[in-house]
Nucleic acid binder design. Sequence first.
DNA 1: TTGAAAGCGCTAACAT
DNA 2: ATGTTAGCGCTTTCAA
Lengths: 343, 343
Amino acid sequence: MTERRTGSSPTLRDVATAAGVSAATASRALNGSTRNVSEEKLALVLDAAAKLGYVPNLSAQANARGSTNTVALIVHDIADPYFSSIAAGAIEAAEAEGLIVSMAVTGRSADRELEIVSTLRGHRPHAIILAGSRVGDDQDALVAELREYEAAGGRVAVVSQPGLPYGTVSVDNHAGASELAAALVAHGYRRFAVLRGPDALRTSRDRSAGFLAGLAVAKIKVDGRFVIEADFTEDGGHAAATELLGRGLDDVDLIFAANDVMAIGAMRALRDAGLVPGRDLAVAGFDDISAATDVDPALTSVGVPTRAMGLRAIDLALNSEDKGEIVWLPTAVVLRESTPRRS
Amino acid sequence: MTERRTGSSPTLRDVATAAGVSAATASRALNGSTRNVSEEKLALVLDAAAKLGYVPNLSAQANARGSTNTVALIVHDIADPYFSSIAAGAIEAAEAEGLIVSMAVTGRSADRELEIVSTLRGHRPHAIILAGSRVGDDQDALVAELREYEAAGGRVAVVSQPGLPYGTVSVDNHAGASELAAALVAHGYRRFAVLRGPDALRTSRDRSAGFLAGLAVAKIKVDGRFVIEADFTEDGGHAAATELLGRGLDDVDLIFAANDVMAIGAMRALRDAGLVPGRDLAVAGFDDISAATDVDPALTSVGVPTRAMGLRAIDLALNSEDKGEIVWLPTAVVLRESTPRRS
DNA sequence: TTGAAAGCGCTAACAT
DNA sequence: ATGTTAGCGCTTTCAA
């Protein structure tokens, strides 16, 4: 057992001493970019390091080098599958580059987000990734903070919130919904109802507009009284569908909801009214959350490549020269039993 | 516009100079624990810092102080709701203590986990939290690595994997399942079937044993042919339930599955056989995943306080003296429509 | 190839 | 209350 102060790790100097070389040589052997160390000393140093259980102090290293090996990821809520999947992608990409990810959550508060950016900035991460759609309001303070970060050499990328002056990865909600509409028409559906979320939500807007546009291509129009706005939640979907049933279905054969949870709510409303979703009335959603395959019948939806979004965000931040670049990731229509083919 | 090197942030010295004080004073004003700075200079420094957009370099700070403000969290898969919820709790607790969380994922590989612990250790985090149940095999290397970390003053806590010599937060699966059994008996059920996961999984073992124990209290025994082992997955549940139906139900009135996804699979199997879950045959699961309320009928289950587990893990790591302490978190029975009260 | 020495940005005695 | 002076652990000139 080597004598060593308790409560602290062996330092580079310890290793150097043990190996009988200078700290500089030990540094070169262990973490150096330039490999000008003799085989012999190299072995000595590596040996001593292993023996002592030496782990380089990354703070000190960062301090000396002036750069870290971390990236910061900011999400609204890591327990939300949407964000956790983005995080998974980001972490994967970061680890592939030898970077470690530090994470913080805003709880959807803009103030908190600003605080967090500032704190995280203290770690001098290679990049800061902001994930989560901003709620319109003034983001001047945030942009100012990020500007300073950039001025100091930091990279920024954002996920799903076009409008910030940074590399952005986003998903083409309009196109995805439009494709879904086309697929549904091909399945034989002709009369549609649309359950949309609040108009203030760009995501919801894009999806309903895209869906209607897709139908328009097939010369199908949707009667205004079959387009209903409600909360972007399961209860919202339930309420909207109930409202729809109240107005009279006429011969509507499919309900499109702007997201899966609304669609699931709508399915519940149908059942409450004694209808069988998928048989009496088809239902489709958007997001392809995991619950989409848990419900009965399984829900037709549009998959959003959340994991890929995280991956690309890291890539964008680290490797793109063109800030302001927007990467549009494709969605994927998934047809399931809630929209059986109509004979 | 102040003259400043581009590509680097203003330093404490810059602030001090701008404020006309020494670096030490600036340090005390900005980040000092002891507040021995005159109102006047304090204002001066704060002002200069704000003007320059100064953000303390946390690496340097850590280096000088010999301690960081981070904790490391290691999970198998952040996209898994179980882990993301634990992470949410951990992040919340950490942020409350002013700590930021860096995260890494193992992808369930023991080798990768070891690597990660070593890398993360380089950041000299206050604590390392390991979440995820280990798969029995030899963990000597991991423990050795953690020992060194501890020797250097690091704190370790683990979630859900009793057996490691560290503070552990776990959930009492046995008691939870037992309570569920009691609640079900109180609801009028008398004849049970149990769909268990692989016996190698402690979680599954504890749950089925607990359930049977709970029934035993009510003097109810479960016939061996109504206890079926299968994969801990939805398909496993489906297969097991199908098998059960094949063996003949006799007058079994409720199926308990060792987790929710199995239960959901079982519900699917019932429907496939023309039975209506909840009406013809009750079903209950364990975990209370979000899908439990999405399925129809909503699934009776036992809630696992994943978020609280994350919270407590941080707490344990940071504030507990007694390593080896095990915190058992209580589960909560949630009765839903899949197990209606029997008249 | 190697070592001595300076310095990264900050903190913490130690003086004053 | 403030400034001076050493460090923290590591990297990186600069000589040798």
